[in-house]
Design a protein around this nucleic acid. Structure first.
Lengths: 196, 196
DNA sequence: GTCGGATGAGAACGTCATTCCACTTCCGGG
DNA sequence: CCCGGAAGTGGAATGACGTTCTCATCCGAC
């Protein structure tokens, strides 16, 4: 892919993200994306074979930025000693980011349930990095649980995200439940850290 | 609502469920529903103000039947003593039901992420009954955890359902992970039951 | 019976995603 | 430097639906 093409691709994704964050996924039209990005509609389809494909790419892009920001943000502050606090803090910041960009949060959900194969790949990749980030925050969890626990927290997070995005719960409630889950799941491993 | 009208409503929902299970949600057309049910298209919209509304009603209906079947099925066999086994067995049967009706499972997911207000209500109600069923299977969980634990298992279940429905994992893998989650979460409360 | 709301049957409308067309513009190999 | 084909442009055309509309007919309450 030539630099020129990479740039076009980026413009498409940026335009999609801008438009989604402005008006929501459901009102996103391919024509708008093409206009806003300065790429012809037909060409758009040369880069992304379908709207779902573009949405998945855009979601992935945003999510990557988000994780970078989160990592940087956390690095800048003193980490709490207790494992569960670290995780809770991480999740709280994640939720805040969603709050700032509700339309992009909804985009994430849309892509998560998309049956487009590319979307599935992207979602898998996102889930993997998410679990890795969580795992990094819980060094005291024993090997036997290092697979399940992050998976579990990720699932709970997804679930709250969906509940919030669909208007079934407030962000505060969602976070509260999520925090409860985290504390419950990490409780058995917290003692060691406390002693440090 | 007259009996006549209740019947029409039922026909609409049945037709929707039949068509969805035959061809999948994405190919479901309102026109087909109207033809298959013998209710005029315009009338359909008098009963359900939108496709989402109809889908939500249909999903709710199916899910209710499903839960009844599950309850009956479980009642018919000897319950294992250990709490986590009971829950695992319940979830396994649930998963099998999804396997039998993948298109309806997908319908469930579709409705779960729908932003239609009626859909949200329905999803909330479904989640509540699901949690109640789970809770009934874990009598040894102490009061402090009787809210979180079912919630947690439900979230994990949702998450696996989505992963399966979108082709990100096989049903076997989904169930295996789910079982692991259940055992992990219920481990602290299992001892008492074992002793019985 | 009679009248008004409900229904049937299906045409008509409006909104997109996706594809096509007729030209330009680019770009790498000769 | 030149040329041919690939890539891009701008926008029209297509096709698929969800939703609404029309109007003739039906049904139940009075």
């Amino acid at each position: 892919m030539s630099p020129r093409q990479l740039e076009r691709r980026k413009h498409l994704i940026d335009a999609a993200l801008t438009l989604v964050s402005e008006t929501g996924v459901e009102r996103l039209q391919m024509k708008q994306v093409s206009e806003r990005s300065g790429v012809a509609l037909g060409t758009t389809y040369r880069y992304f074979s379908s709207k779902d494909h573009l949405l998945a790419a855009a979601a992935s892009d945003w999510r990557a930025k988000l994780m970078d920001d989160l990592a940087a943000e956390l690095r800048g502050s003193v980490p709490p000693t207790r494992g569960s606090d670290r995780v809770v803090r991480f999740v709280r910041r994640g939720m805040r980011a969603f709050q700032r960009q509700p339309n992009l949060a909804r985009l994430l959900v849309t892509v998560t349930v998309s049956t487009d194969p590319f979307a599935s790949e992207v979602v898998d990749a996102m889930a993997a990095t998410g679990r890795a980030s969580l795992l990094a925050l819980m060094p005291d969890v024993p090997p036997a649980a290092r697979e399940v626990v992050p998976h579990l927290i990720d699932a709970a997070w997804q679930s709250e995200l969906v509940a919030w995005v669909t208007g079934r719960s407030t962000l505060a409630d969602a976070f509260a439940r999520l925090e409860e889950v985290i504390r419950l799941v990490l409780a058995p491993y917290g003692a060691g850290s406390l002693a440090v």
